[in-house]
Each structure stands twice: as C-alpha cells, then as structure tokens.
Design a protein around this nucleic acid. Structure first.
Length: 577
DNA sequence: GCCGTTTTCGGCCCGACTGTTTTCAGTCG
C-alpha cells in the first residue's frame, strides 16, 4: 500500500490540534499535536510506514496515542476523533480564527451562543450588534471584528515572501537605520535572520543614543510605504511590497536578550527556556532570572545569553529545535559562500539563459571560481531552445576551444539533461560520455505516482554517466510541493552510487530542502551547491543554496564544490567508474 | 498528549496587550 506523504499526515495532526483547541482541550494537549505535526513534517522517512511498524514513537513528540492515530489515518483513511470533531464543528469555524483577536475560545463561544459558523454569519451578527449580547464580548470586540472583515482578513492566511525578497528589503532598512547618526547597533532578527525559506514579517532590534529619534526615522526610509505612530522605543511600518516591519530600540545591556528572543524560532526558545528552568533559570526577552539569587542577568550580546545558560553559541540558522539544544551539542563548522570554488549548474543562450558561454565564464572568474560547468537544457525540455545532440556536439567543441584559452580556470561542458518518465536521460550514453559533467533533473510528468517516480529517479541516480541530480524534490516555494517521491530511497541510492545531490540556489527552489539535505549528508551523499543561473547576474543565487546548507548543519567537507578542481573531478561519478 | 539528572505521574516558557474584568481570560508573538 502506498503511504500518505508526511506532509498530509502532518496536516491531519495540525487540524486535529485545531479541532481539539476549539473543543476546549488544555493547551498542552493541543501543543502535543502541533509538536507531533512538526516531527512528522521534518521526518525523512515515511512516517506512515514507520507507524505501521510501531516505530513512529522513535520520533520526538510522537507517543503511543499519536502513533495510533497515524495508523488509523494511513490504514483506514481517517482518524475517528477527527471525523467526530469535524461533525461537531463546522468547517467555517477554523477560518474565523484567522481574524486577529479571535481565537478558538471566542469562536466556540459565538458558535454555541449564536450559531455563528462562517465569516458571513459572523458579519451579519456583528452588524446586527448581536455579539455584545454574549457574556465576555462587548462593543469593542464587535467593532474590531467588523474592521477585520472589512480589511478582508480571514479570507486567506497571511502571505509569506521568499527569503530573497525579505532580505533585499530588510537589509536595505537595516543599512538605512545604521546610517542614522543616533543609531548604535542595528540587527535584523526573526526568520529572516535564520535564513528560513520564507518570511512573514521583518523584526529589527537596535540600540541608540536617542531611541525616539531612531523610531521616528523608520517612516522616512525609502523602503517604507507607511508607518504607524512611532513610540519612544518601538515603531511599526509596512514596505512598498506589503511586508510589515517591527522596530524595537532597547537598552544596550539588554540587546543580547532581545535579539535572541526575537530571532526565535519560537520552538527553539521554548526548548531553551524549558531546559533553563531545570537549572533554576528563567529566560525572557528582558534577561535571565536566577532563582538562586533572585537577580535578573542582562546580556549585551547573544553570546552572553547562551554562555549564561551553559550552552555553546547556536548560530541563528540552527535555531529550529532540531537537536541544537541537546546535551553534547557542538557547533558544527558551517559552509560559507567564500568556501565555494565552482558552480556546476548554469544556462546560456543555447537553451533558456540570457548570456553566452564566454560571458558566463567571465562572470564565474570574476566571482573567484576555479571552475564552471555549462549545463544547458536537453532536447525534450519543452521550453526555450532545444539543445539537440548535434548542437551539444558543437557546444562541446566551443567550450573546449574557450577553455584552452583560459588560464587557471576550468570551463566544463556539461548538460542538465531531462530525466525522462522511464528514468533514462535525454542523450545516449556515447554523447554523455564525451561531456565533463552531467546533472539530471525532472522537468516533466510531475504527476507520476510515488512508486513510479521513485523508480524513475533511482534509475537516474544509478546511471553511470549522470553525476548529480538537480533540484531533487521539484518543489516551488509558495507554488507547489515537490513531486510525490520517496526521497529517502533516492538518498540511499545516491549514497550507494556516489551520485551527488544538488541544493539548487534559485530563491524559490532551495531544493533539496534543509531537512533532506541534512539527511543526505548524514547518509554520506556529497552535496552540490549551485546557482542554476540563467544569466551572469544570477550566479550569486548560490547564496540561497548556502543558506539552506547552513540550515542543514553542513560544513565545507559535506559540499563537493568546496574542493579544488582536481579533487572535485575525481569525485564525479564518471571518474569513479 | 508527551515525557523523565524531580522517571510512569505531574508537570509542561514568558511576557505584552486588549477588553471586559473587578482580579482575569483570551490572544498573540
């Protein structure tokens, strides 16, 4: 039987948590479901299969009860408790909780007292001033509900933007604030600082000689479209693209506490605080209260916060409650952009790129690289120009000619070949053997069923002339999940054959993701960080691949293209036989 | 519902804000 993808099991647990919350369950029980959902979402094995073997309880946060519910879901297609609660609470209730200031308690209250079960019936009741008749609700609540409905909130979850866009705006705002004469320290916090895939809003923490002058300055920055009234120590604003931003100016001796708190993640902070309580320490954004002395320790730097708790400093990218607070944790060396010596995935005008081979090579040299592989799309790609076998043969000659003229730089001729539905590449083996490099990717037939897709990708991994798999999951952030494939099996095959797996740096890909990249590296797979540049100005996209690699706890030794060309050359599948 | 240098029960982060409250519950980050 084909198991449900982990993301669907996780969604079911999240929904069950929401339903229990509506039902008035204690918060810890609700949290247990959300923690369970996180564990499932971050698992690299099929949790459905694990649960049927009775091994899902090995995941942190999954106990006997959750395992039983997962088994019910994958075997019977439904969890009895979920069916029962869904019958009890209409679907419209959950979307009402998206309104600010309206949570599960008030939704249940309005449902039981007034029968409100949708945004529409809520609107009618608020307009008819019926909400104020309910004990615990008043006219102010009615007004705020109407204002939120008017603003269209509740109709869709708050949008998240790609990290690339969030940092473009956030870094400009930070630079603008730092340039203000009263500013001292200014740092971006939140998920943007953790280099997460996507970002909901920007948090900036600062110190200043004159805090009110700095909060007032926010509204004047060119990136800010509108700003609320600035307070003494805080200001809110919105950028021209609609991203909201919070600025907080704090005392210098609490800067470390605030920066740590607002960098998150929430789960990292919860774990950090739970562990601290066992040592008699209570952590908040204002300091660390020591039970033994009754004193609150203030920290000017984040390093002090972690040191006071007896912990190694945790880099922001690792703060996701994925083991970074476990006893014995040692900070791993993390790869940096300057560690990279080459890029193995880019396009030229021969397929759908914007620059020539020469221009791409020159841009790579200017970045300080030692090698670059030209990897245009193969014949059946379906958009852009098709590089048919004869065109590729001519391209081989051209690249060899150009390479002969370059000193101290290796220009490689490669391809990004399609993985056809049967798992074979687009060119015959003879032609592939003539190349220096071959990366293979899925660009078609995304809807292939899981078992077939897994077989298809493993066939590509096992192919003797395929050196690496490009964007292995096929996800597009904010647009589609990856195709249905058992990535764990693909990783196992890659480890066995010595085929590399890519972290693609296109800002809406970052594929492999951090979870699977970490699993792949742990399995011994060599990881490739590529830009997938379609122009000279996009080689820098490798930054987003580096961000994902760091979130995957990867250091230079895990990454193939941190190696000088002779070493890298020997690592290629084609060189290993 | 999970979990164990306070082990199989009794705990389970911390604080701000809001509105409705007369000491607090709900929501949010």
């Amino acid at each position: 039987m084909a198991d449900l993808p982990n993301r669907e099991i996780a969604a079911a647990l999240d929904e069950l948590g929401d339903l229990y919350e509506l039902d008035g369950a204690i918060s810890h029980r609700v949290l247990a479901y959300r923690n369970g959902a996180k564990a499932v979402r971050e698992a690299t094995q099929s949790v459905g299969a694990l649960a049927r073997e009775g091994r899902a309880t090995e995941l942190p946060g999954i106990g006997a009860t959750l395992q039983e519910k997962i088994v019910a879901l994958v075997v019977d297609g439904e969890i009895p408790a979920r069916a029962k609660l869904k019958a009890k609470y209409p679907e419209g209730l959950l979307e009402i909780t998206r309104l600010p200031g309206v949570g599960p308690k008030r939704v249940r209250l309005m449902f039981t007292e007034l029968g409100i079960d949708s945004l529409a019936s809520l609107k009618a009741a608020a307009e008819g001033q019926q909400l104020r008749g309910v004990k615990g609700l008043g006219p102010k609540f009615e007004e705020s509900v109407l204002a939120s409905l008017e603003a269209g909130l509740g109709e869709a979850p708050a949008p998240r933007v790609l990290l690339s866009q969030a940092l473009r705006e956030g870094e400009a705002i930070v630079a603008g604030l730092r340039a203000h004469p009263t500013a001292n320290r200014v740092e971006l916090a939140g998920s943007a600082r953790r280099l997460a895939d996507t970002v909901k809003d920007l948090d900036v923490i600062a110190t200043a000689d004159d805090p009110a002058a700095l909060t007032a300055a926010l509204a004047g920055l060119p990136e800010i479209e509108s700003a609320g009234t600035a307070g003494e120590n805080a200001a809110k604003g919105r950028t021209h693209t609609g991203l909201s931003i919070d600025l907080r100016v704090v005392e210098p001796d609490q800067f470390g506490n605030l920066l740590q708190h607002f960098t998150g993640s929430a789960r990292h902070n919860i774990r950090l605080r739970e562990n601290a309580v066992k040592k008699g320490l209570h952590v908040s954004e204002y300091g660390i209260l020591d039970d033994a002395t009754g004193e609150t320790l203030r920290c000017a730097t984040e390093e002090e916060v972690y040191a006071k708790l007896g912990l190694p400093y945790v880099p922001p990218e690792l703060r996701e409650d994925r083991g970074e607070l476990d006893p014995g944790f040692a900070v791993p060396p993390l790869v940096r952009e300057e560690d990279l010596l080459g890029d193995l995935h880019c396009h030229t005008v021969a397929s759908d790129g914007r620059n020539t081979i020469e221009e791409m090579a020159q841009a790579a040299i200017e970045r300080g690289y030692q090698y670059l592989a030209i990897t245009d799309h193969s014949a059946t790609h379906g958009f852009g120009n098709h590089v048919d076998p004869d065109t590729l043969r001519r391209q081989i000659e051209r690249v060899r000619t150009i390479n002969a003229q370059l000193d101290g730089f290796e220009l490689l001729i490669g391809t990004e070949t399609n993985i056809l539905p049967d798992g074979s590449p687009d060119y015959d083996d003879e032609l592939l053997a003539e190349l220096d490099w071959c990366i293979a990717s899925v660009h078609t037939a995304f809807q292939t069923p899981r078992a077939e897709m897994t077989k298809r990708m493993i066939a590509a991994v096992e192919h003797p002339w395929i050196d690496a798999i490009g964007h292995p999951s096929g996800r597009k952030l904010g647009r589609r999940p990856g195709y249905d494939v058992d990535l764990d099996a693909v990783i196992e095959a890659a480890a066995r054959t010595g085929t590399m797996l890519e972290i693609n740096g296109a800002p809406d890909r970052r594929d492999l993701d951090d979870i699977h990249a970490r699993a792949a590296a742990e399995a011994g797979v060599k990881i490739l960080l590529d830009s997938d540049a379609h122009g000279t100005d996009r080689l820098g996209n490798v930054r987003w691949a580096v961000a994902t690699a760091r979130r995957a706890w990867l250091g230079p030794e895990h990454i193939a293209n941190t190696r000088p060309w002779p070493e890298f050359a020997a690592l290629r599948r084609r060189a290993r036989g």
